[in-house]
């Protein structure tokens, strides 16, 4: 027993030593490479989801792997440490060592890094310009969402969404909107003075008052019997069928566009980084 423990300890130390030798001393050169991130995601789906979940949400399998989308350990970890977590495993946990080529480990690390960083700080594959066209056109996003003052009122403003959310969250919101919290955006129908039904959302409500923003941008502050003009809707206004309505490429293009939305990055088409500019030098 003692011997086997010692053997494991020795093996771990040896692996750790190997890790130090094998791990790159500098930053992960693939961290901002969209192709590497995409390759890392493919490997992640094959190797990691059993414990960490399909989106890195964690809590799966025997190991109940930690959430990798919202992990302070990963945000704090250097590229070298992140490499070692995968290459060497994490002793005292169910995280095994993965005997993969350095390139694959760097790709996996780039993907895991992208799960934790705001979407505008990681490379996102896809054609952002085409995504903008979808946002304001076929996909109908601008019917409810604004970007820099252009768009509708029924959904949250997305002008800074690339700086506020991670890529995984954007994907989740787009494909599985039923998992989103709806505080401030609960769907209702509002009966107008002429008896017409208008799409609207609830900004706040209590037993005494309700504030409703309708799809034209008009705010209704209702009290007492006026509150009866509002009827709750079971399904939120965000369509739940984007996975069917859009092709995988279109979804990726939309994500590429959304991930760039930040007040502190250029957004005009002339300043927008081209697809080739995303590639590492």
């Amino acid at each position: 027993m003692k011997l086997s423990l010692l053997a494991i300890l020795f093996m771990n130390l040896a692996l750790a030593q190997l890790g130090r030798v094998g791990a790159p001393s500098a930053a992960n050169p693939l961290a901002r490479d969209p192709k590497a991130v995409a390759a890392g995601e493919t490997q992640f789906q094959q190797l990691c989801t059993g414990c960490h979940g399909r989106s890195g949400e964690g809590g799966q399998g025997e190991g109940k792997g930690p959430n990798l989308m919202n992990s302070w350990e990963i945000r704090r970890a250097s590229d070298r440490q992140l490499f070692a977590f995968i290459h060497d495993g994490v002793s005292g946990t169910a995280m095994p060592a993965f005997a993969l080529p350095d390139q694959s480990i760097r790709e996996l690390a780039a993907y895991v890094r992208s799960l934790n960083a705001p979407a505008n700080s990681v490379p996102v594959s896809g054609d952002a310009h085409a995504g903008e066209g979808l946002f304001f056109g076929k996909a109908g996003c601008a019917g409810c969402h604004m970007i820099r003052g252009h768009g509708g009122y029924l959904g949250p403003d997305l002008s800074e969404i690339g700086a506020k959310r991670r890529l995984g969250e954007l994907r989740q919101a787009l494909l599985h909107p039923d998992t989103l919290a709806t505080d401030g955006y609960s769907p209702v129908m509002l009966q107008s003075a002429q008896g017409k039904q208008i799409k609207a959302i609830v900004k706040q409500q209590s037993n005494w008052s309700i504030s409703v923003l309708d799809e034209t941008g008009e705010l209704h502050l209702l009290r007492g019997s006026e509150m009866r003009r509002v009827s709750a809707q079971l399904r939120q206004w965000m369509p739940a069928d984007y996975a069917d309505r859009l092709t995988p490429d279109e979804i990726q293009n939309l994500l590429a566009y959304l991930s760039r939305q930040s007040l502190h990055l250029p957004t005009t088409s002339s300043e927008r980084p081209s697809a080739s500019a995303e590639e590492p030098n």
Binding site: M146, Y153, L219, L263
Partner: peptide, 13 residues
């Protein structure tokens, strides 16, 4: 900052 007074959406900073 310029915001839409109806929903707090930002125009520019």
């Amino acid at each position: 900052l310029a915001l839409d007074r109806r929903n707090g959406a930002i125009f520019w900073e």
